[in-house]
């Protein structure tokens, strides 16, 4: 039935970038419009990969992070739906993504931090127990720690070791045979490491990390639009 519904889409899909799994590995570096396109293509794609739910969640997570300020109502509804769909998944990548969604959710309802923050921490810890060298788990935990108030054990200094470990883990990760399997994280870890270094006042290290990230992807929007403006110095653009 689903295949029948997709028939109209396929004629257009032929005109769209065909390598969906490749695009899904750079979700966090895409702009809002590209994410919406990717979200739609993923929804209409006939693939039955077991990673489909993960990617749908990841795309939505990235989309919510971009539209939450402008369109909080839509963003929160999308986030709620994603959290519900990820709850049943027990693989480390999905657990870490759910933990990251909990962190986003706290932004919509600050009072929920008292229950959602420990929940996120529990998810990250459980995921790390199962996959201690998973760069995406380390990255999401690092981002969560970075955004957690110092009183609750967070802050830039606390996040740095996690993000450095994420960078190393991403560099050491071998390519997966299944193109749908999550394999992203190298550029993203560098971007967030640079962000944490900037917030920790380590400007020189942050600039160097930005350069490493831009060497991998010169169009990395996260680095150019969010990290570099935090840094001073004309030599880094």
């Amino acid at each position: 039935m689903r295949a029948l519904l997709l028939l109209p889409a396929l004629s257009l899909a032929a005109a769209t970038p065909p390598n969906l799994p490749t695009l899904l590995q750079k979700v966090d570096r895409l702009g809002t419009d590209d994410l919406r396109e990717l979200q739609a293509q993923l929804a209409l794609d006939p693939s039955t990969s077991p990673w489909r739910t993960y990617h749908e969640g990841h795309v939505t997570y990235a989309l919510v992070a971009r539209i939450r300020a402008k369109d909080p109502k839509v963003a929160e509804a999308l986030l709620d739906r994603t959290m519900k769909s990820l709850t049943e998944r027990k693989d480390p990548d999905s657990q870490a993504l759910l933990g990251a969604c909990c962190g986003l959710k706290i932004g919509f309802a600050p009072g929920s931090g008292i229950s959602l923050s420990p929940k996120a921490t529990g998810l990250f810890d459980e995921a790390l127990t199962r996959a201690p060298a998973n760069p995406r788990v380390l990255l999401f935990k690092g981002i969560h720690v970075l955004h957690t108030p110092a009183f609750f054990g967070g802050g830039a200094e606390k996040a740095l070791p996690l993000l450095e470990a994420a960078v190393k883990a991403a560099e050491a990760e071998t390519p997966a045979k299944d193109p749908w399997q999550p394999a992203w994280g190298r550029s993203e870890s560098l971007g967030w490491l640079a962000m944490a270094q900037a917030e920790a006042g380590k400007q020189a290290e942050a600039k160097a990390t930005c350069e490493r990230a831009l060497a991998l992807d010169p169009k990395d929007g996260f680095v150019t639009e969010r990290v570099l403006p935090k840094l001073q110095g004309p030599e880094v653009r």
Binding site: A9, L12, A13, A15, A40, E76, A77
Partner: peptide, 10 residues
């Protein structure tokens, strides 16, 4: 060409 996935009105 673009593909648009519309969500239920929040």
């Amino acid at each position: 060409p673009i593909t648009v996935l519309m969500e239920k009105e929040a």
